[in-house]
Simulated assay, not measured.
Amino acid sequence: MDVFDQIISGATPAEVILRTDRFIAFLDVRPVFPGHTLVCPLDHYETLYDLPVELYAELLIAARRIGLAQQAPLVADGTLLVTNNVVSQSVPHDHLHVIPRRRKDGLRGFLWPRSRPTVEELRTVGDQLRAALTDEEAR
């Protein structure tokens, strides 16, 4: 049982912001900014790809509710939604970070390093992904 399962069961305290029939949202104990909230399913799914497809919309709806709630009291200009899938996933329980953002809040390097691929490199990767999507649809 991971720490999120413990929070869900009530064995570990957390600052719960929202709880629905399928999801819980609670404040991150190591926030990027105040109000940084984690939204995770009540049922244990290790990664985003383990989460049943029919729950994706509900996950985003919960994240939307949290993001909108962050705006006024936290004077947030926007929201950063982030999920890790295996790499850098510190808790093996699917979760979505809802992080309030402000212009010039100092968050840098989060989605870097970035590159400048050539048109041909972009085309090659695009071809690979389109082929993988076609293979997926054929299954």
Rank of each mutant, 00 (worst) to 15 (best):
H44P: 13
P113I: 05
R130A: 12
H44L: 11
A132W: 02
T83E: 11
V53A: 13
A131G: 02
P52D: 12
E120W: 01
D43H: 14
R102W: 00
G67Q: 02
D77G: 12
S9M: 13
E46W: 05
A76W: 00
V53F: 10
Q71K: 10
V82I: 12
D21T: 10
F110Q: 14
Q70T: 02
V3R: 11
G67C: 04
P100A: 02
Y45W: 14
S9T: 15
R30I: 02
A131I: 02
P73W: 11
L55I: 03
C40L: 03
G78Q: 04
P100D: 00
D43L: 14
A25H: 07
N85G: 13
L59R: 10
Y45L: 12
F33S: 04
I61A: 15
L55E: 07
R114T: 14
L51D: 06
L81I: 04
R114W: 03
L122M: 14
V39P: 00
E15D: 15
F23R: 01
R22F: 03
F33M: 05
G35L: 00
H36R: 00
L18G: 01
R64D: 08
T47M: 02
I24G: 07
E120S: 10
V91I: 15
P100F: 00
D105K: 05
R139Q: 14
R123N: 11
A11V: 09
V29F: 07
F23K: 01
H97F: 06
A69L: 07
G10H: 15
G126N: 09
A62Y: 01
Y56P: 00
I61R: 15
V91M: 12
T79F: 01
